[in-house]
Amino acid sequence: MNINHAASCFRGILARESLRFLNQRARFFAALVRPLVWLFIFAAGFRSVLGVSIIPPYQTYVLYEEYITPGLLGMIMLFNGMQSSLSMVYDREMGSMRLLLVSPLPRWFLLLSKLLAGVGVALLQVYVFLLIAWFWEVRPPVAGYFMVIPALILSGLMLGALGLMLSSFVTQLENFAGVMNFVIFPMFFASSALYPLWRVRDSSEILYWIANLNPFTHAVEFVRFALYLEFNWQAGLITLLCTLFFLAVAIWGYDPLRGFLPRKGGAAA
């Protein structure tokens, strides 16, 4: 693979995703409104009930808004990853995915580039959200805004790869919308995004273990610790391993020699 060609290809995919995103302003606002509703309404309403005592990475007692902010960053990455893979199913049905897949570069590189471009767009949303949250007095350390970037990229890649993997199994747009609901909501609610795991354990031991097995929990914790200038090795390692696993299955799923698309008749039948 020629490095200049690969760089040119990645630039093209990134530019396309960014332009599409900027041209679809409604999508931008919708993506932003969702976590803001949680921050302004849900968190404010539950502040007195759900204040969080001193647990790592926090150095002091924190307000509930501050606690759920990393979870809401995870929410942005989760919805973006699923949205991106939904658009892949749509593109595959409409045909523009074919243009990408018949390009003269390895398929794994094309899929990884598409994922990274999607993460780039999600990062933009994350920082706009963090800016608004700052005015809402959610103010992590300034260095945390930079330290969190690698954690956000890895988490975004993991969630995007999960969506990509699911899209390689699902050949019809209508079915994929159902799969998304089946994945997004259990993943988000059965995690540490909204409440710390020790609190979950108090009420349900089973839910605690489910949340522990949920990759989204580890992505959120990885982001939470990074935002407060700490490195959570365990969460980072699990997020990395899940990313590699989802990505490998997705690439396998999109491989014409072994994948599911031809067997089911896919879009090109």
Partner: peptide, 25 residues
């Protein structure tokens, strides 16, 4: 392709630039 594969959110030039990028031009 049988179905149009131009990106409807982009301009003609942006679509063509995207293709050139994919082919390393």
């Amino acid at each position: 392709f049988q179905r149009p594969t131009l990106d409807r959110d982009l301009t003609v030039r942006q679509n063509l630039r995207y293709f050139c990028n994919l082919h390393g031009i």
